[in-house]
Amino acid sequence: MKATRNMEESFEVVEAALPVLAAVTSGINEPRIPSLMQILKAARKPLQEWNAAALGLTAADFAQNETEVLSNLAPVEQRKKIIYEGKIDENITSLVDSLIKEGVLRG
């Protein structure tokens, strides 16, 4: 199998003998839109469920979770959120004045 990897500074064309595990980035392919017939057919396809017992595994075969999540929260945004609407020329003047006061223009 041959694949192109997008690295920081270059593209690498890499070869490997099978079996191969490849992780691909999004956008690798455009999924086609299935036809109505295909959607209907898909509903009739058999679903095979595998659980641990079917694979001959017990709880002991699974690795312990190695990380503990202490919290998982939306990041806090502490921004001024001053939004100008309406008269564009006046708004631009106010914005530029504010940016000068913030000291973020030039230098």
Binding site: R79, K81, I82, Y84, I88, L99
Partner: peptide, 17 residues
């Protein structure tokens, strides 16, 4: 929601000004 200053307007009009 995450800006300090925002201008509601078309970039084609606002940016040149």
């Amino acid at each position: 929601e995450m800006v300090d200053y925002g201008i509601v307007g078309d970039i084609y009009e606002v940016v040149p000004k």
